[in-house]
Write a protein that binds this DNA or RNA. Structure first.
Length: 315
DNA sequence: TAGACGTGGAA
DNA sequence: TTTCCAAGTCT
């Protein structure tokens, strides 16, 4: 869950998962759809698909226990270099180098590595491995990550109180904020489309499932047009899932990692529920139980302003 | 190896 | 408002 995601964002999801599925065997026994519903809103949905796959494999092939072996850990879905090392180090006390974004920042500053990421990764791993102690390597890994999260921060690092400030090459010779060096980012393209919120006479909304792979894979959606780069004023009503009295109901913008999406929202009320469609109808009150990604909740909220209760963050 | 892959918070 | 970024992984 913590891959590319802040602790604050993860907290309620982690607690929910642990409550629902306390063990890996419980997760293996869960349905894929239940897992996607519980993950909805957290983003990077391949993580949820991989987590479930991983639980299935650990239950089936490893007797419900993670292997204490770096290569075997890495072979599991969703477990890459960082997570494999974190499990080996923290769970099994193996002296392997744990390298996440925090460690990359601390190490590149400590040694003033000017090679841009990701090319610098092998050097960073080697240097981190050399620093990693044979005992309590997991504590060391977490200490380095916490140092990066709280003191050796991306901007305005607190070098004055840093326990490594006597040894930091970047602080000694230049400015720690210059590190890590990264390749320049590309501009985000804009894609446009339309979304259709159909409401039946008894207040149910029409939803359908997305493909299991790709963007928002395995999640739920309201029908939409293709998301293209067209910039004309075309309504896209021809792409509506069925004929109805579609009326314009505003627009939303949603920023994904690699593009910006602008959706025109269309709404139709008193829609007849036809058996010929491949989706399903769900009451507005039960929308919270669906695997709706945030962009789809925004689309629905544009057509039905009170569709989702305003949620307060945990204190 | 570079692009795909979500979301929300902070500066 | 815009940009960056957060306990990365997969193809």
């Amino acid at each position: 869950m913590l891959q590319q995601t802040t602790v604050e964002a993860v907290k309620p999801y982690f607690l929910g998962f642990i409550h629902k599925w306390p063990t890996i065997l419980d997760l293996a026994a869960a349905s894929q759809d239940d897992v996607m519903r519980a993950w909805a809103g957290l983003g990077y949905y391949s993580r949820a698909r991989n987590l479930k796959k991983c639980a299935d494999i650990v239950a089936e092939n490893f007797d419900g226990h993670f292997p204490a072996d770096l290569a075997q850990l890495k072979s599991l879905p969703g477990i890459g270099d960082y997570t494999a090392a974190a499990i080996a180090s923290i769970a099994f006390d193996m002296p392997v180098a744990v390298v996440d974004g925090n460690v990359e920042r601390v190490i590149t500053r400590l040694y003033a590595l000017s090679t841009p990421l990701p090319a610098a990764k092998p050097d960073i791993r080697r240097l981190m491995q050399a620093l990693t102690p044979d005992k309590r390597s997991g504590d060391f890994a977490q200490a380095m990550m916490d140092l990066g999260a709280t003191i050796c921060t991306p901007r305005r690092p607190a070098c004055v109180i840093c326990p490594l400030n006597d040894n930091c090459e970047a602080l000694k010779t230049t400015d720690p904020e210059f590190f890590p060096v990264k390749a320049p980012k590309k501009r985000k393209p804009v894609r446009m489309g339309a979304a259709f919120v159909a409401i039946s006479g008894n207040g149910e909304v029409y939803l359908r499932g997305r493909a299991q792979t790709g963007l928002l894979g395995g999640m739920t959606e309201v029908p939409t047009t293709e998301w293209t780069s067209r910039a004309d004023g075309e309504t896209g009503i021809d792409a509506a899932p069925f004929e109805a009295e579609w009326t314009s109901s505003g627009a939303i913008t949603h920023i994904f990692t690699h593009f910006e999406l602008r959706l025109t929202i269309y709404k139709a009320q008193n829609v007849q529920k036809l058996a010929s469609n491949d989706g399903w109808w769900i009451s507005v009150e039960n929308l919270d139980n669906e695997a709706l990604p945030t962009v789809m909740k925004k689309a629905i909220a544009a057509a039905i302003p009170d569709a989702f209760e305003k949620r307060r963050k945990e204190a």
